[in-house]
Computed example of a mutant assay.
Amino acid sequence: MSTPKPAPLAWTALASLDEAAFCARLGPVVEHSPWVARQAWAARPFAHWQALHEAMARVIHGAGEARQLALLRSHPELAGQEARAGTMTADSQSEQGRLGLLALDATTVQRIETLNRRYRERFGFPFIVALRLHDSLASVLQAGEMRLTNDDRTERHHALQQVCEVMRGRLSQAVTPDLPSPSSATTLAGNLS
C-alpha cells in the first residue's frame, strides 16, 4: 500500500520550513532529483510561488551538462518498462494514467515503444513531455514525432523545459500558490478600470 500524498502546504507555511523539511517536501517534484530543491533552498526567501518555481528552474537550467543528462535519464519512458513493472513514482503513475498510458492496446503500445526507442537512440535520454499540457495521447505522440526532428542542443533544452513544466504541475500540488495581497488586488483592479 502506498503512502498517501500529503495535503498541499500553505504558501505561508513554506517560509517556516527548515532546509531538511523544505527538501523533504519539495525534493520529489523533480523526478529522482532532490538536489534541485536542495540547491533552490539557497534562493530563499521566495517573494511568491512563481519565484519558487523560477528558482528551481534556474537550478535545472544552470546545472552542468552531465547533471542535466542524469536528470533527464532519471525520467521514465512513456508506458515503458517502469510503467509495466509498477516501479514509477506515484506522480509519474498518476500523470501517465490520466491519458491512459497504463492501459493501452497492443497497437498503441507498439507505436509508443517505437517512438521511445527512436527518441532514446537519437538523443540518449527518454522522451519527456509534460502530460498535463496535453488533452490526448494523440497530441503527445504528435509532439514526440515533431521533436525527433530537433538537433541535439535544441532538444535537450526543450526536454529541460518539459521537466520544468512537469515540476510546475507537481509544485502546485505540493505548495498552494500564494494569493495576491489585498493591496496588490486593489492596485490590479485599479489598473484594469
Rank of each mutant, 00 (worst) to 15 (best):
R156S: 12
A24M: 03
G190L: 13
P180H: 11
A15L: 09
I60C: 06
T149C: 05
S184D: 15
R168N: 12
M88Q: 14
R118T: 09
E95G: 05
R168P: 02
I112N: 01
T12N: 08
A57F: 05
R120W: 09
H158K: 14
A21F: 08
H61D: 13
M167C: 09
W49T: 01
S136R: 08
L26D: 02
P126V: 03
M146R: 15
F22R: 05
H32I: 03
H158E: 15
L188V: 10
V30I: 05
L101A: 08
N150H: 14
V30M: 06
L137K: 08
A15E: 15
A174W: 13
W49C: 03
T12Q: 09
S74M: 00
P76Q: 06
A159L: 14
Q81Y: 13
E31P: 01
N150S: 04
A130K: 08
I112D: 04
L17Q: 02
S94V: 13
E145L: 14
A159E: 11
R132N: 11
I112E: 05
N150E: 05
D135K: 08
L9K: 04
T149M: 06
L14S: 08
E165A: 10
S33A: 15
E54H: 12
R168T: 11
S183K: 12
P182H: 08
S33H: 01
L133S: 03
D18M: 11
E54F: 03
A66P: 01
G64T: 01
E145S: 13
G86E: 10
T3W: 04
P182F: 04
S33K: 02
E54N: 09
G190M: 08
S172L: 04
L188H: 12
L192Y: 11
E82K: 10
K5Y: 00
W49I: 01
A189Y: 07
V59K: 00
R122N: 10
H158T: 15
T154H: 10
V140C: 03
H61A: 05
A51K: 05
D105M: 11
V30D: 01
A90T: 15
A130N: 10
H32S: 01
V129W: 08
A7H: 07
L9P: 02
E82Q: 15
K5C: 00
G97S: 13
V36H: 10
G27N: 09
Q68E: 05
R168G: 02
H157P: 01
T187S: 07
H75A: 06
S33R: 03
E77Q: 07
H53G: 07
A159R: 12
S92Y: 10
L141K: 14
L137E: 07
Q93F: 04
I60D: 05
